[in-house]
């Protein structure tokens, strides 16, 4: 985490003085982008750097669904399962991903290539159903487009 401190310093400059606590979320996000997950040593580093209580960081990590303490596959494929997506075929899509990869939501393929999750509304309901791979939205998905996407994910 230490190599990110110059970046954190630039971030801090945009915040008012005394807002160290607010930096927990952006710092955790950046660490996760860098390492893929948040390790114990990252928490130690943040406690020292920001001067916030350790429990605050632990609480944040356990509260927000986007943060994780363990690695995911190279590709994190997330399928929306909320109302509009379900009305436009998300349930078939989710079943199809599961059958194609041989894993259920929350699991990673044995080769560590793909982690598959379901998520709640992604704010993209007009182009349902929606699949997110890492950060990128893939909208108006069909079984055919999903198959093509799975083939692309090397």
């Amino acid at each position: 985490m230490k190599h990110l401190i110059p970046e954190f310093e630039r971030l801090k400059a945009r915040f008012p003085a005394g807002f160290e606590s607010s930096l927990v979320l952006p710092c955790v996000r950046r660490i996760q982008e860098d390492r893929g997950f948040v390790a114990d040593s990252d928490i130690d580093g943040l406690v020292a750097y920001l001067g916030v209580p350790r429990i605050q960081i632990e609480e944040v990590l356990s509260y927000y669904t986007q943060f994780r303490r363990t690695p995911v596959g190279r590709w994190h494929l997330q399928t929306c399962r909320n109302v509009s997506c379900s009305m436009c075929g998300a349930e078939r899509l989710i079943a199809h991903v599961g059958a194609s990869l041989g894993i259920g939501p929350g699991e990673t393929t044995a080769d560590g290539r793909i982690t598959f999750s379901t998520v709640e509304c992604l704010g993209s309901c007009g182009t349902a159903p929606v699949v997110v791979v890492n950060e990128t939205y893939h909208e108006s998905m069909s079984i055919e487009r999903l198959d093509a996407l799975l083939r692309e994910l090397g």
């Binding site: 008012p16 606590s21 607010s22 930096l23 944040v60």
Partner: peptide, 29 residues
């Protein structure tokens, strides 16, 4: 005046105004 874009991390109740502020303080929402 400064403007900062602050990213949430996946929690519906952070859209509720006071939950949003808890989150913006770097805590659970």
């Amino acid at each position: 005046c400064d403007i900062v874009a602050y990213r949430g991390a996946g929690s519906y109740v952070c859209g509720e105004a006071s939950g949003l502020l808890s989150s913006l303080e770097g805590k659970r929402g």
